[in-house]
Design a protein around this nucleic acid. Structure first.
Lengths: 248, 248
DNA sequence: CATTTTTTTGCATTTTTTTGCTTGTTTATA
DNA sequence: TATAAACAAGCAAAAAAATGCAAAAAAATG
């Protein structure tokens, strides 16, 4: 393993877990702890991380997109991990934005080769870091609130593709109203995404389940997978499973 | 094995595995490591890969970590400040990517109301933070090395707009060859940008002046403004000013 | 075709970088 | 305070890089 690769790996671990132990890194990468220490020293000298006794911590403002104040980060990480199972080599994946999707973008395994379409700036930013993923950005006007592109151009572009999978971070889902949201522009885009994709997976923390907002994105039966942080056998999901949705 | 073949093989390996070792290449192609080193040096000089101790890494790999340390940041801030003078309320501005443009994006005054078009992820991210700026993202495939969109869709989109001003961060400019760059895809997009805009401003640190790369973006006389960190009366600019370019 | 020039390549030598190890010191914490 | 872990500094071996040089190959020239 080359020195630069090692340092890249360390930074990735730091961005993923916010902290690393020298001993872990040493065994993971099969080099002596001295080497790790020297790497950490270099990275800390260039302000890439904060070196502490035994390892290193992430510089809170190091990443362009702050993660400190993400609501229910652990739950979202868990969701992202489950969602990984749906993504296979060679797939064309269309994704929305949102913090859950961004967590997913961060943990995509390096060996994965796939093509990702998105209109989300932070998501595209994360995808673009990945060595083997081709990223197609769906351009148009950027909605300030959500950092994703909205508008006719974007929708036309989405209509012109046929991805295998759509990963949708959503704000509200319930049995009778389906997937809903409050932002008109965003709803138009997400609608188009669900229509375009062969299958749609909905990612949400359970807190948002059985809630409803003003505008409909799609019906429950258009959703193939529901991914939350809870065990898929929980009672909460019974009624959803009955509609044919696969709970992960 | 011919030199050209060898270098093509190296690039193929880089695209395949994101990394190569000089020693591997040496045995695989039955040439001395010196030769490999010289090949890697050449490829690195034309920005095809990142040369590191022991081998080389793919550009996309590199972009995934060492981004925070911006070269000549102070100079770039100064350039950004000068460029501000060109941007007026109500303008439609088309911008490339690059660290200088991103500095500019960061210091746009809050009162400014304008519409910005860009294909650069980090630039769009900065523009989107601004309260009064409308951001239109030019979508297409994202080039890993430079974090900007490239390709036919992007170029078509650029051709369909008529911005007042194009702000171009460039890597090389000289009197006889004009504005040049090394990345074919990026050159296509920048070409389209210059063609589309009423006026083009070139932003560059003086270090890159009077240097030349392999592919032409535009002639000197297509540039309306040249913005560097140095005083506009410096001798360095005399010849440029004579061609009618306004030096800021 | 002969000859000059340029490019390419490998080799020897020196220099630099990287890495693991040892030794003695510091630090965290039970 | 005791103790194990982590650290810093220096050292040495190995790997890689830079440098200069010369032979071979290729290209250009008359």
């Amino acid at each position: 393993m080359l020195k630069r690769e090692r340092q890249a790996f360390i930074l990735k671990q730091i961005n993923l877990h916010n902290r690393v132990l020298s001993s872990d890194l040493s065994t993971e990468m099969q080099v002596s702890e001295d080497t790790i220490r020297r790497d950490l020293l270099e990275l800390s000298n260039t302000d890439k991380l904060i070196k502490v006794h035994g390892g290193a911590l992430s510089k809170s403002f190091h990443s362009s997109f702050l993660r400190e104040d993400i609501y229910q980060l652990d739950a979202k990480k868990m969701i992202a991990n489950k969602a990984l199972n749906l993504i296979k080599d060679g797939m064309f994946v269309l994704t929305s934005g949102g913090t859950t999707i961004i967590e997913l973008a961060r943990i995509l395994p390096v060996e994965l080769k796939a093509t990702f379409f998105t209109g989300s700036i932070p998501a595209a930013y994360e995808y673009a870091k990945h060595p083997n993923i081709e990223v197609i950005f769906i351009g148009d006007k950027i909605s300030k609130g959500s950092q994703i592109t909205v508008g006719g151009e974007a929708i036309m572009k989405i209509n012109s593709i046929k991805p295998d999978l759509c990963l949708l971070g959503v704000n509200a889902i319930d049995l009778t109203n389906g997937v809903t949201d409050n932002d008109w522009d965003v709803v138009q885009v997400k609608k188009a995404m669900v229509e375009a994709a062969s299958k749609t997976a909905v990612l949400t923390i359970t807190e948002k389940m059985n809630t409803c907002q003003k505008l409909k994105i799609c019906e429950i039966n258009q959703v193939a997978y529901l991914i939350t942080e809870m065990d898929h056998q929980a009672d909460l999901f019974k009624a959803y499973a009955n509609t044919g949705i696969e709970i992960l």
